Simulated assay, not measured.
Amino acid sequence: MSQRVNGVIARGKGAPVEVATIVVPDPGPGEAVVKIQACGVCHTDLHYREGGINDDFPFLLGHEAAGIVESVGAGVTDVAPGDFVVLNWRAVCGNCRACRRGKPWYCFSTHNATQKMTLEDGTELSPALGIGAFVEKTLVHAGQCTKLDPRARPAAVGLLGCGVMAGIGAAINTGGVTRGDSVAVIGCGGVGDGAVVGAALAGATTIIAIDTDDRKLEWARGFGATHTINARGTDVVEAVRALTDGNGADVVVEAVGRPETYKQAFYARDLAGTVVLVGVPTPEMTIELPLLDVFGRGGALKSSWYGDCLPTRDFPMLTELYLQGRLDLDAFVSEEIRLDQVEDAFAKMHTGGVLRSVVLF
């Protein structure tokens, strides 16, 4: 029997979000219903609300979530009712050309629930990133549930569901940061600070955090940055070179997603260094670079989808580091809020006053 629960929806482009009654069907084959305990407020949710992803309104927002599996459909064997899980938006299929080539983090046919959650009048909802977790209970594909140690704090490890994982993975998985490397991170919000953390975990010895907000730079130092650059009024490229013996960084992570910061990343890397774009640009953005510079500098220009993570591999490992006290996920949680405060959390994103607001249920 379907259930009626409270959730946050975006009805139209730019309209304030609202709490509405959501109808959640019983799980079908391969699906699971998860009782949400905590869900982070991510910039991607704001992009959905503002029509920056697509126009499939109304959206059921939220995707950085942890909770308890309540029920599962036929054929589900990897999780069971009562399991503590973090939700992910790249439930790999195992059969597409990327999966068959041993690169499932590039899966081109990721799984989502087949059934739709709806409003009470039957209007179908588009769940953000195939999850939709600003809601008391949500319906997902069982492959989107990664079982974790239940001792972990939901508000903290739930952030592995998107932003923090994207940043850590951008440094380690995509950028290939290793011991002794120099790393520069442009943009020190939740994703950028995740990249700082990832660089520190991988053994980078020089970690340069770059932003225009001194508060964010201070946060980055707390996550392991060895140097900071306030880009307001500073030549970022020259400043990075000055901190790397005139060479540029081995890896530069661009966590903003703008042409001007991408160019900074391109020229702030060492010859044959790596640029990783993990910041999400908007559709109208373009970039122009001298092709000779692209050729002459060598190295690699990469984009990072979800930190090129494999949830079944990366979530448990990072959760174990968290439980050991070696990864401070709690430091990413700026505030804990109610479901009806999501719109206020979006407003705080514009002021830069929070790393993550987290909805608790």
Rank of each mutant, 00 (worst) to 15 (best):
A202R: 05
S2K: 14
V72G: 05
G40R: 07
G94E: 06
D26T: 14
T21S: 14
A142I: 06
P29G: 15
D330F: 02
T146N: 14
V183S: 13
K116L: 01
P104G: 10
D235A: 06
A209R: 04
K348S: 10
V183L: 10
A220P: 02
Y262A: 10
K263D: 10
G62T: 08
Y106L: 15
G224Y: 09
L301G: 06
M117E: 14
E50P: 00
I229D: 06
T146Y: 14
V135I: 14
Y306P: 00
L87S: 06
E320V: 02
M165S: 13
N112C: 03
A32T: 03
C107R: 12
I210D: 08
V85R: 02
Q341T: 04
G14C: 11
A74W: 00
N95K: 14
G75C: 03
V92S: 10
L329F: 07
G132A: 13
V135W: 08
L129R: 13
V92D: 05
D213N: 08
T244L: 09
L318S: 07
G203P: 01
N173E: 08
I229Y: 04
G279A: 09
A242E: 12
T226L: 01
L159G: 09
R100E: 11
R269E: 03
T205F: 01
R153G: 04
A300H: 13
F108S: 14
N88L: 01
C162R: 08
D149P: 08
V256S: 12
C107N: 07
M1I: 02
G307M: 10
G169D: 09
Y322P: 03
L291D: 05
G190H: 04
S126A: 11
R4K: 15
A239I: 03
P283G: 07
N95W: 01
E31S: 10
T178P: 00
Q144K: 13
L323N: 08
S304V: 04
V183H: 13
D121P: 01
E288L: 02
D149R: 13
Y48T: 03
L329Q: 12
G40H: 03
T212F: 00
M349P: 00
Q3T: 12
G352P: 02
R221M: 01
